[in-house]
Nucleic acid binder design. Structure first.
Lengths: 248, 248
DNA sequence: CGCCACGTTGATAATGATCAAACCATGTGG
DNA sequence: CCACATGGTTTGATCATTATCAACGTGGCG
């Protein structure tokens, strides 16, 4: 009864109540009315690792919130060389407004759950809720910052620095319960060595070598290929190359 | 007479009348009233090459439209390694909404003219004009696409491919009067070899070698270090590595 | 004139790619 | 249960690309 009343008074659709996308994602911009309208057309999906979500040069007919898991965004050259140009974690918004065709490929790196909306529903929401567009802008600018951060890594860091930077980034994104100042962290890598190499612009052999090098030096422990423990975050940080921004 | 009436009825501020930012930039989103309001606080500046526009970790107190020239956005590691993470041409919007401090450095690569607005004016415009936010989103997404395109270049292309890709990008951006299908193009490089190397994640020596290699092969001519003529666009394209997107 | 910043060219070294083989965990069918 | 295939991973040997170091050219400018 209390529950029903809560729902009634707040007007927030039940599946949205505990959704991360409402707390930190784009849905946080929406009034209960808008949210209810959007929720009517939404659908949840559980995706297996490796499944392609958006094909390159494919028409985009839906947008999604990432609720859990990791999605990798890739671009490929015609001779097969591939580059991962972004990773999306919950509660990121997946999809490219204003473009009919996607120029990138989205694929589930881990098991992923999505909350998907038809294209038209998102477009309507963009028309009727300025705050929603505002949120989309914020997310786009964050992704832009991240992309540029990785451009520095791709263009100017050595292989050891690249791998260290990658581990640090994953540690900070995957395990949100680990606070940034923590001494150590333990987590599952969300992708294979080959994926990591496509992310860092190096070969999987080099990734492997750098990981064993970090292991030999006692910076990390590798439990079973995927599971990694960082014993000393500060030592890992020191291997990421110079600080991103020049100290003031 | 007809002209005066146009101006009067449209109510567009005089300096904005022939401004590229109104035709293709963010100001195109604004109604005459908004435009007039914004124009009151705007100021134009001519900047010399090499002048820093936004310092890393510096408070951002104004936003600008690029009216002419090229602005380079850079990020640096503390040991001096530098990466150019973006180039802005007219009529791009310069500045990072929602953040007090810039994480990147903006510097005039060529002579640049700007139309600048105080921070508060832009924030007000974002509140009162949803269409303006809409445009900012579009620009941010375009910059994101470009950044990701360059991630592929940085991570997966060889030095010769990088230099060819760079020339192609410049040819397409600088000389907007050259239609994309043109056979040849002639333009001024907007930056030094060192800048180009910071953009491509290679050394200036390598840039130089690849340029002479292209010159030897008759793909380009180098008039005087800065001035370049591409004799055959198609041959240049063929040296950029596989097509960005896999053909359908 | 000679300085200075930028650019080119050459010789050598190092980083990371490539090729190849072995390894390991996992799942499958005899 | 074990042989065996499979995909991902590790490790080693060798090679290629590109960085580094150094010298020289060139054009503008006090």
């Amino acid at each position: 009864m209390t529950l029903r009343q809560d729902i009634h008074s707040s007007g927030i659709p039940v599946p949205c109540l505990s959704c991360e996308a409402r707390r930190r994602g784009v849905c946080g911009a929406l009034e209960p009315d808008d949210l209810a309208q959007l929720a009517k057309t939404s659908s949840r999906h559980n995706i297996e690792p490796g499944v392609e979500l958006i094909g390159d040069a494919e028409a985009v007919d839906c947008y999604s919130n990432v609720l859990s898991g990791v999605v990798k965004l890739t671009k490929s050259l015609s001779d097969g060389r591939q580059q991962i140009v972004g990773l999306q974690f919950a509660p990121d918004f997946l999809g490219r407004p204003f473009k009919m065709k996607s120029a990138i490929n989205a694929e589930a790196a881990t098991a992923v759950s999505l909350c998907s909306f038809p294209r038209a529903a998102i477009e309507r929401m963009m028309k009727q809720s300025p705050e929603f567009v505002h949120r989309l802008l914020k997310q786009a600018l964050n992704e832009l910052d991240e992309a540029r951060e990785w451009m520095v890594t791709l263009g100017r860091k050595t292989a050891p620095e690249k791998v260290a930077s990658f581990l640090l980034m994953i540690a900070r994104n995957i395990d949100s319960n680990v606070d940034p100042a923590a001494m150590s962290a333990c987590f599952e890598l969300p992708m294979t060595r080959a994926d990591i190499s496509d992310f860092l612009g190096i070969t999987n052999e080099t990734v492997s070598r750098q990981l064993t090098s970090l292991r030999m030096d006692g910076v990390i422990r590798i439990e079973n290929n995927r599971r990694v423990t960082v014993d000393s975050m500060s030592r890992l940080e020191r291997r990421c190359g110079g600080r991103g921004a020049i100290a003031v």
